[in-house]
Design a protein around this nucleic acid. Sequence first.
DNA 1: ACAAAAGTGTTCAGCCTACACCCATGG
DNA 2: CCATGGGTGTAGGCTGAACACTTTTGT
Lengths: 236, 236
Amino acid sequence: MDLPTFYASGADHFLPNLSVDIVIIGYEQGVLKALLLRIGDRWLLPGGYIGRQEPVVAAAERILEERTGIAEPHLKFLAVFGDPSRNFGAQWQVFAQQAGIPWQPQSWVNDRFVTLGYYSLVHIEETRPRVGEIDEAYGWFPLEALPSMWMDHALIVEAARLRLKEDIRHEQVTFNLLPDTFTMPELHQLHQTILQEPLDRSRFQKKMLATGLFERLPQRRKDSPGRNPYQYRVKH
Amino acid sequence: MDLPTFYASGADHFLPNLSVDIVIIGYEQGVLKALLLRIGDRWLLPGGYIGRQEPVVAAAERILEERTGIAEPHLKFLAVFGDPSRNFGAQWQVFAQQAGIPWQPQSWVNDRFVTLGYYSLVHIEETRPRVGEIDEAYGWFPLEALPSMWMDHALIVEAARLRLKEDIRHEQVTFNLLPDTFTMPELHQLHQTILQEPLDRSRFQKKMLATGLFERLPQRRKDSPGRNPYQYRVKH
DNA sequence: ACAAAAGTGTTCAGCCTACACCCATGG
DNA sequence: CCATGGGTGTAGGCTGAACACTTTTGT
């Protein structure tokens, strides 16, 4: 669907007043990063709309897949953002201008939208980000140094940041952020980054191994000074 | 707004394709119960729509207040129910028939709806349930013995049941289900009911008191055989 | 007096905590 | 050989589990 068609008759294909936005979080060089898209001089979250015959979850997975190329998306629901001020007609006008197409003030997008926020943990190396129709570039931004963002998307990222911190205490499904094989020091560092507080190294290692989720690989790695760490993999 | 107006032009006032349903849970005689509304020979959850200028949370609170008369609603988001098969035009036809008003096949309600599920814990004694425009009666039903329900509402109740079980392990905000003053045996029984498993009486008491959330009232109660329990109240 | 209900104690195991200590590697 | 980084061990404390004991009440 090209942009003029989208503006004019998107409501025939998608549910109106309802959108999906995804905070795609990766981890690189000890820093948590979010995948953002640029339009003009600001950025926004990857997002989209729900096909009239499409399950909501399928829409979120589709959007994630479209943007990252990830075949088996791992998504979690974040929150509903339902403030009535979420009307971004003014922004859409800028977007249309950017794309060089005529502005349609009557378009369905110039209305209030409730958005369903999701978040997904991905391994950056395995993603193949693609830009969409209107966005001109993508970028991974540290959660602590986000650029200026459109709409209320900075708020949504912040919600995901807090949520991730909460979730890690109950589940340890954080290895999505790491490569297939990783070392305990790497996993340790990741947890510290997410929780933003130091964790006892010894305890962490024992706790992780006690879960029985990991298998130790006999291989080791070579590196800088110290001892060579074991590598681990999540059991099939 | 009367029903014909609602069918004809509800979409002018409410966001289309989006609804709110609330699982209102109470506790009575050792049993968890949900507040349901009857239309014809089946039941459904209290629910409604989101005003075009109304925050989503405000809509949920309004619906809860309308149905229960509770001034300070305590709501938690449950889940999004977004299957494309959630089109209940056929049911609406029955509802209109029940209400004795002409059926409007073109109405906005004969479309797919994504619903935002919330749940709320209430003290049954403090609720003053009211029926709405189309529903003929209300009733509190044990979660284990739900009547035949319209749409997919049985599914939503089940999701709330599971969620409540999860939540109680992290937070102990269950006293909403009890009167202002209650005894430890009562709170103990409530937790056992929610978790559906026996809890050590001694440990439970110590754990609860250790939270420091309760103040012991010097009064006691008189009752059947055994010793008189202390009463407790949540600290202001 | 007895059974039943409610409150409190006691013991043991397991886990969390905070380190200390031992191994391996590069400079 | 020493600094650095990684793996493992250990002593103390806290918490949870299971059960015993005591107190209070109706019958």
